[in-house]
């Protein structure tokens, strides 16, 4: 199955500001959620590789994960041109929802790269 479209779709059909009611398009919301999830996973893998290559261990290593997740959030913000409301239900949800989704992936790749680079 093809990866989700990389574009973020705006969450309602009319961009007008005079409407009180917001009519949300569920497919667009789902697509946006998928894109964010995808970004998080990708960033986790990259983060794991970076941490492994740098030979970070223990606490420092754990710090790298939130660092990269924040990077992901910045990417998302820039993609939405700082108009997060147009694309997501709430800023907090977009930024921090699913923060730890990629934790296990991060651990895996961190261990993998660390061992290959430093242990042998």
């Amino acid at each position: 199955m093809a990866p989700p479209a990389k574009a973020l779709f705006s969450r309602n059909s009319n961009g007008s500001d005079t409407d009180d009611k917001e009519f949300l398009i569920p497919e667009h919301m789902q697509n946006n959620a998928r894109v964010v999830h995808w970004i998080r996973q990708y960033v986790s893998i990259v983060a794991g590789c970076v941490a492994g290559v740098l030979g970070l261990t223990n606490v420092v290593g754990f710090l790298v994960y939130p660092l990269f997740q924040l990077l992901a959030i910045l990417i998302i913000l820039s993609k939405t041109n700082s108009n997060v409301d147009k694309y997501f239900m709430s800023t907090a949800n977009a930024a921090f929802g699913g923060f730890f989704d990629g934790a296990m992936t991060y651990l895996l790749f961190w261990t993998f790269v660390y061992d290959i680079a430093h242990l042998f």
Binding site: M1, A2, R34, W38, Q41, Y42, I45, G102, T105
Partner: peptide, 22 residues
């Protein structure tokens, strides 16, 4: 333990490579 770690960590990788609904 490496086996277990792989089992849990691969899920993210599969989402990326095989797309949603894998």
């Amino acid at each position: 333990s490496w086996y277990f770690m792989n089992m849990f960590g691969m899920r993210g990788l599969f989402t990326l490579t095989l797309g949603e609904g894998n």
